[in-house]
Design a protein around this nucleic acid. Structure first.
Lengths: 214, 214
DNA sequence: GCCCCATCTAGACAGTGTCTAGTTATACGA
DNA sequence: TCGTATAACTAGACACTGTCTAGATGGGGC
């Protein structure tokens, strides 16, 4: 039987791994999930993949490159998760669409705390990297369009799009970050994460878009 | 003349530093401000303070201990900054008080991005540390009380205190985190940070507390 | 004045990122 | 089919790190 772990380690006796790059990224994910972001090292990642300690540098340049690639992978996965959620929810109007997106954002962050962390870290890689900024920018445009749609549909007066966009992203991002930092969780032990996520997102959206005027 | 740097380095020829603990914390701050969180090492911090590489371990146990102490120092400073801001603003009612607090929170994070980062990191120290949790908890209670006061004053119907507290903290925290990560800033180059901070905080507060009912 | 003990030093060790020169094997053009 | 350019990977070296030890120093309380 070929387990998932087999695809991580290099086939014995072979010089070339075959798909080392993605194997190293999956090793990074495993390490972060099990022992935290601080446990990631090029050498340990190489060890898991069964290659020499210098091999990762060839694919990512240096450790910053590995973390940046992991962050970009996170953006890809998050965008995919959001699109999947929206497809499943089939929201009827703009505000419902926004709730669906917001919930999916927070849910992804809760389910992948390590990777979400890395996606927004200031010190692990060059923040000016074009691909990295591009991933975040397209997410921003997506959110801005969603909110503009709510306004166009008459759920709120025009002119507030920029402020609402900042508020909406800030709220879901802050909720995710605070939850993962253990602050919200420690104060509301009895709170069901999914219910809280839904409740908060619906409350904010209702406040921003109280309803189509007569 | 006695510059600030003099108080960092140990007086020559003396064995005991005198106030090594706080000198090490200030060295940490300097390092983070100038070269990022990743640049902090016990040895470099010791070098700046002019002591041997093993000295910091005696005060903080290990590197986690240093970062935890730095995080706690951040909480102290942030709470102080918020109280000072509220005193200066002299807000007339609950919502105005909340705006004052929110603005001060974001302003502190913008002015101290490195320390703010460390305050909420999941991987630099033991999150279950009692002092660390205590600092955050008292901030939470403070915010919850503020929002309860808005409700008591009739600015919103009762029952929403918990949800509003989560929304309010999430929003300011997310705004601070996104701004520091370079995302908001990169999209709104022309935006004045202070004006944006004020605008967003006032918009959210107005949405939550539209006004005292007749 | 004396002694306890907090403070600090200095060396050792394993682990790390990165650099370099060299080895292997794959893809591709003739 | 063969050669070769080149991508993929190895292995050793180096400076640096956190942490552990044994020991040196000197300030404060009795």
């Amino acid at each position: 039987m070929r387990t998932d772990h087999d695809t991580l380690t290099k086939p014995q006796g072979r010089y070339h791994h075959g798909d080392l790059r993605s194997a190293l990224l999956r090793a990074t994910e495993t390490l972060i999930a099990e022992h935290g972001t601080g446990a990631v090292s090029l050498r340990e990642v190489a060890r898991i993949a069964g290659v020499s300690h210098g091999a990762p540098a060839h694919h990512f340049g240096n450790k910053d490159g590995l973390m940046l690639a992991f962050a970009q992978d996170g953006w890809d996965r998050m965008i995919e998760a959001i699109l999947t959620a929206v497809e499943a929810d089939r929201p009827g109007d703009g505000p419902a669409f926004l709730v669906s997106v917001g919930k999916a954002y927070v849910r992804f962050a809760m389910a992948n705390p390590g990777q979400f962390d890395v996606m927004f870290r200031r010190d692990l890689y060059d923040l000016r990297d074009r691909g990295y900024l591009g991933a975040g920018d397209s997410a921003w445009v997506f959110l801005e369009d969603t909110i503009q749609r709510c306004i166009d549909e008459g759920f709120a007066p025009p002119g507030a799009a920029q402020t609402f966009t900042i508020i909406a992203w800030s709220m879901v991002h802050g909720l995710a970050a605070l939850w993962n930092s253990g602050r919200v969780r420690s104060r509301f032990e009895k709170l069901d994460p999914d219910r809280m996520n839904e409740q908060v997102n619906e409350a904010l959206t209702t406040m921003m878009f109280p309803g189509r005027p007569a």
